[in-house]
């Protein structure tokens, strides 16, 4: 029963969140977290469960984002149509890619996805007549309030977590994990590995593409550097998965929360704490420190990954029991 109650309680808290916390800044952060839950879940399905490491989540994210933006700028169709279509176009990209690249195994497949990421970034940059190149595309936001976006993002995040939960406990899930553990054994168990890897990739691409399209609608502006970004999207997706817990249902949710929080703490210099400290003390050195700290979030990701790999190899959710034991022990020691 605990399996149902805890997530349900969490969902209710998330539903009530924007009604309680009316500050637009925190609502914005939560929308980002929810977007990352969706992207992380998508990544987790193909990489965590099926074992085909995706280094190019931004390819699907960006394609989804550009689908929504181009619908509005070229066809004058509401960017909201981009939401379903963004997912669909991402799948259409995933299909031929998977068909060709699933002949590659392990790190070679991962490198191919990295290439896919770069191919689309270059296309979006160079094909100026279609994508406006580096200038980017501006999309007018439909709502001024953040609340509608929040609930759409929540629906997407909850939907992707539920999708993972349902899939992994079904026949598909067993097949995905079998493929991850040993592809040859899976073949001789009668599993059509190419076919099931395709299903996994298409599901992932769909979720990530949807998140991309929602990003366009929410942020109102995209350019190739942002949506096809290797370190801000593709690597971040991997980090969300690893920190939260690879091949756990709730791992990406936990990972998204931690990663966005860390990113924001650094970006804002400890939520403005360092700026205040600088003013209070009057030390000029604080200004320099603030500047460096706010640029150091990527460095902090590196440190975090080292920590996670050393102490929590299965991620926060995957090693939850170990983590809880350590924390309890630590509390008893200090008490």
């Amino acid at each position: 029963m605990k399996r149902v109650y805890v997530p349900l309680a969490l969902l209710i808290v998330l539903i009530l969140f924007p009604l309680v916390v009316t500050d637009a800044y925190y609502q914005h952060l939560m929308i980002l977290v929810l977007l990352w839950v969706a992207i992380g879940s998508g990544w987790n399905l193909i990489s965590g469960y099926t074992g085909q490491v995706l280094f190019g989540a931004a390819a699907f994210f960006g394609v989804g984002a550009y689908t929504a933006a181009l619908l509005l700028s070229k066809l004058d169709v509401s960017a909201w149509w981009g939401l379903p279509l963004g997912g669909l176009v991402a799948v259409l990209i995933a299909f031929p890619f998977g068909w060709i690249c699933f002949r590659l195994r392990g790190p070679y497949f991962a490198l191919a996805t990295l290439a896919l990421n770069e191919i689309f970034r270059h296309i979006a940059t160079i094909w100026e007549s279609l994508t406006e190149g580096m200038v980017g595309i501006l999309v007018m936001q439909t709502f001024i309030s953040k609340i509608p976006y929040y609930y759409i993002a929540l629906a997407l995040a909850a939907g992707s977590v539920i999708m993972i939960d349902v899939v992994t406990r079904s026949r598909l899930g067993y097949y995905f994990v079998s493929i991850r553990e040993d592809q040859d054994a899976a073949e001789s168990m009668g599993i059509n590995t190419v076919y099931y890897k395709m299903i996994s990739l298409c599901l992932s691409a769909c979720v990530i593409g949807l998140a991309g399209a929602l990003y366009t609608n929410y942020m109102g502006f995209i350019d190739p550097k942002v949506v096809f970004s290797l370190h801000d999207i593709s690597i971040m997706a991997i980090l969300v998965g690893i920190v939260g817990g690879v091949s756990t249902v709730y791992g990406p949710a936990m990972g998204a929360f931690i990663m966005v929080a860390i990113q924001e703490v650094f970006r804002s210099g400890g939520f403005g704490l360092l700026v205040k400290l600088g003013k209070a003390t009057g030390w000029p050195v604080m200004a320099t420190v603030t500047k460096y700290v706010s640029e150091a979030h990527v460095l902090s990701f590196g440190l975090l990954v080292i920590f996670v790999i050393l102490y929590l190899p299965n991620g926060v959710v995957g090693d939850w029991s170990t983590l809880r034991k350590t924390l309890l022990f630590w509390k008893r020691e200090t008490a």
């Binding site: 406990r169 097949y175 994990v177 079998s178 553990e181 040993d182 040859d184 054994a185 899976a186 168990m189």
Partner: peptide, 27 residues
């Protein structure tokens, strides 16, 4: 296989369930 290929990070039961799905649909 002569050189055994167990699906290592799955329980024995899950190993066998995965292959049982070949003939049946429902879990």
């Amino acid at each position: 296989f002569q050189i055994v290929k167990p699906l290592k990070r799955m329980s024995v039961l899950d190993n066998v369930i995965a292959s049982a799905f070949l003939r049946v649909r429902r879990k």
